[in-house]
């Protein structure tokens, strides 16, 4: 898994490439907790290149949201594939995250 973070107009865009599973999600957790630790107001997770995500990946996203909410921060998901959408749905967590078709849409705030 590769993680790249860039900042665009104060928004952190985190691009993830590869599977997010029990082996790799600690690395994602570390990258995201750094952002919430710095109270970044909006985090956009680009999931377009994530073919597979398991419960640990979903839990990592939820924990990031839990950390961002107290300071008014938000976490948006961009371009999740069908496998990621499926596990979000199965976990009954679809409603937790604004989901966008692309990073651009997420940056503009369009659902």
């Amino acid at each position: 898994m590769r993680i790249r973070t860039r900042f665009q107009e104060g928004v952190a865009v985190v691009s993830i490439e590869g599977d997010v599973d029990m082996y790799t999600s600690p690395e994602l957790r570390s990258a995201l907790s750094e952002l919430t630790g710095e109270r970044v107001p909006r985090i956009v997770l680009d999931l377009g290149a994530v073919p597979f995500m398991d419960s640990s990946g979903i839990a990592t996203l939820v924990q990031t949201l839990k950390e961002a909410r107290p300071y008014g921060g938000e976490v948006r998901l961009a371009a999740p594939g069908k496998n990621v959408l499926r596990i979000l749905e199965l976990s009954n967590l679809m409603a937790l995250f604004p989901i966008h078709g692309s990073v651009e849409e997420a940056l503009r705030g369009e659902a």
Binding site: M22, S55, S56, A59, V62, Q63, K66
Partner: peptide, 11 residues
């Protein structure tokens, strides 16, 4: 796993 405790609690 090497998941952190907060993530484990959510799972």
């Amino acid at each position: 796993t090497k998941l952190d405790e907060k993530v484990i609690r959510i799972i």
